[in-house]
């Protein structure tokens, strides 16, 4: 019976769907980042494509990483926003600028510049009862290692390192080379990493953790950077991270066929300062991301009008 009902309903619905007008600009499949900053970035492009350029956008949300890059190479996804070069294991294989075969096209810098480092909560370094007032640079880390001791790490301090080995942060190597009495633990997923930090923060417990900016965690928790030695390729990983000049990327065939989309992506720039308030509104105030972006577009017409393809 269910089947009969479904087919009747289906027939009814078909009548409706047939009358939907087709999009003039065509359909694009966009890779939507699963973190707010990157998602905001893409959403701006989507809304411009939909409202101003008559495109229909299919938003496909999946964790970023090699799987998504494979999909862009294969043409299952047309473009993606805000790729962080430090954490991509595939750009050296696919992006020409990084020595790859060109099966993934770097369109242009996205505007966001990423900074990664170790962070501690402000209550640890500031205030009258702050347990580690001098913990602002790596040189003083050993002095406070005792504060971070746990069951699992024994005598060493516990550093919440990069959550996934595939990001190649080499936290433990860094500790060894810098002679720091810490053990970096890997929590497996970003979600676990932030959850651990947030729970410790709520309980005002000491922790030292890897993090980066821009990120919503800084809107939720008041964190202070621990300075690492300036980045150098030769001494890596005994140094801090290089700045991440993020970029937007696309499937080369799609780029050839849709020059106007590529021109938009090419002109598009969203700096850290422009992105941060939107992240705050979505993740801290709990607003709907589409609405936040729509409001931004309303208020910044001059900015995005300049990005439009000529």
């Amino acid at each position: 019976m269910k089947q009969t009902l479904t087919s009747v309903a289906g027939a009814l619905a078909l009548a409706i769907t047939v009358s939907t007008p087709a999009s003039a600009g065509g359909l694009v499949n966009s890779a939507v980042n699963d973190w707010t900053g990157g998602a905001v970035m893409c959403e701006i492009v989507h809304q411009i494509l939909e409202n101003e350029m008559d495109f229909k956008v299919k938003r496909i949300v999946m964790p970023s990483g090699p799987g998504r890059d494979e999909a862009i190479r294969a043409g299952d996804l047309d473009y993606g926003c805000e790729l962080w070069p430090s954490y991509s294991t595939t750009i050296q294989k696919y992006v020409t600028e990084f020595g790859g075969d060109g099966s993934m096209l770097k369109v242009a810098d996205a505007g966001v510049i990423g900074v990664s480092s170790y962070y501690v909560p402000r209550y640890m370094v500031e205030g009258d009862n702050a347990p580690a007032p001098d913990l602002k640079s790596w040189e003083n880390m050993n002095q406070y290692a005792d504060l971070f001791k746990t069951l699992e790490t024994g005598d060493k301090g516990r550093l919440l390192g990069c959550p996934a080995a595939s990001w190649q942060c080499e936290d433990n190597k860094r500790m060894e080379l810098l002679g720091l009495n810490y053990e970096a633990v890997e929590l497996g997923s970003e979600a676990a990493h932030w959850a651990e930090m947030q729970a410790a923060y709520k309980r005002q417990e000491p922790f030292i953790a890897y993090a980066w900016e821009p990120h919503w965690i800084h809107a939720a928790l008041d964190l202070v950077k621990v300075e690492l030695p300036a980045h150098s390729d030769d001494k890596w990983p005994a140094t801090g991270w290089a700045e991440d000049v993020t970029f937007n990327y696309a499937n080369p065939e799609f780029a050839e066929k849709n020059p106007e989309v590529i021109e938009l992506l090419n002109n598009f720039r969203l700096t850290n300062e422009m992105q941060a308030p939107m992240i705050l509104e979505v993740d801290v105030d709990g607003k709907d991301m589409e609405e936040v972006v729509a409001a931004w577009l309303d208020n910044n017409e001059d900015t995005w009008k300049a990005w439009m393809p000529k």
Binding site: V185, G188, A199
Partner: peptide
């Protein structure tokens, strides 16, 4: 998983 993490922390 997330509540478990909040309560027990990230470890084996």
């Amino acid at each position: 998983l997330i509540p478990a993490l909040f309560f027990f922390g990230g470890n084996k």
